[in-house]
Nucleic acid binder design. Structure first.
Lengths: 145, 145
DNA sequence: TTGTATGCAAACGGTTTGCAATGCG
DNA sequence: CGCATTGCAAACCGTTTGCATACAA
């Protein structure tokens, strides 16, 4: 959980002006573990940023991706999703709900060498598709329902 | 290399009417190792199918994907690419050229179980990013977009 | 104060839809 | 012959662009 002071420092460190629009969008993206589309981000932040325009949203997203504060990910053909986790990791897509879960990088064995000499692998990423098991009822949650 | 008789048989086996548009598009997709976008397919086949309309192209592509003759692949955010290789395989993307190479399924160890009980993995796919080694005697498998 | 970021609206590219005409089985 | 498929054009949706205004530094 990032404070607004930390968000301000993050933007400043990247030589970006701190605007309410940028700060609120970064704040939302840092708090969510989803991989939302631009439209989903707009729906999520529009109440907190009265009068936010779509043009500004796309402009901010482009700026944040260029600054490596966000990444775009290719999970479904034809869709752009945004991810505040810019470090190496994999994805699990629940095909029944469309939900996307981050999978820690070291869950998968090192694959840099499996293609042999012909391919100089600089990076790789695994997309898993399936159904997530229902959370166990016995597992206590921090939040009461 | 598929003959037109074989293409006709393939479509018929899937209970699809054989039209010149469908046959030509299947023929092109079976002959290419690329992973073309709809626009690239249109450019490639429009001379062989005079008067082909974009609407028909998208209609045919949707029909072929539904019939599991083609697959869509998510290689870049926001782009739909089509693949006549409908069996399990991975992809290597040359980041300098944008070329895409099919990687045989068994180059990567079985990953169905690595996520444990919580994730019921039905399928997975690895995207490798890097630079292909120089000696390219054979034609590249995909052109840059 | 200065230049960048914003809001708005129009434009844009890729895809879909509706409908009349064509043609496959 | 009958219904699925086609061509065409308009509509649609996500994204980009141009421009006047607002505002962070």
């Amino acid at each position: 959980m990032m404070t607004f002071t930390q968000i301000r420092q993050l933007l400043t460190k990247k030589h970006l002006k701190v605007t309410p629009q940028r700060a609120m969008i970064v704040d939302f993206m840092m708090q969510t573990d989803c991989h939302p589309t631009a439209e989903e981000i707009y729906e999520a932040v529009k109440d907190a940023i009265p009068g936010l325009s779509k043009g500004t949203l796309y402009n901010v997203l482009k700026t944040l991706v260029d600054a490596n504060i966000l990444n775009t990910v290719a999970l479904e053909p034809g869709t752009v999703r945004y991810d505040a986790n810019v470090s190496n990791h994999h994805h699990f897509i629940d095909v029944t709900t469309g939900e996307v879960y981050d999978i820690p990088w070291d869950k998968v064995q090192n694959l840099f060498k499996v293609l042999g000499e012909d391919y100089n692998v600089a990076n790789y990423q695994v997309n898993f598709y399936g159904v997530k098991a229902e959370p166990q009822k016995s597992a206590p949650k921090s939040k009461p329902s």
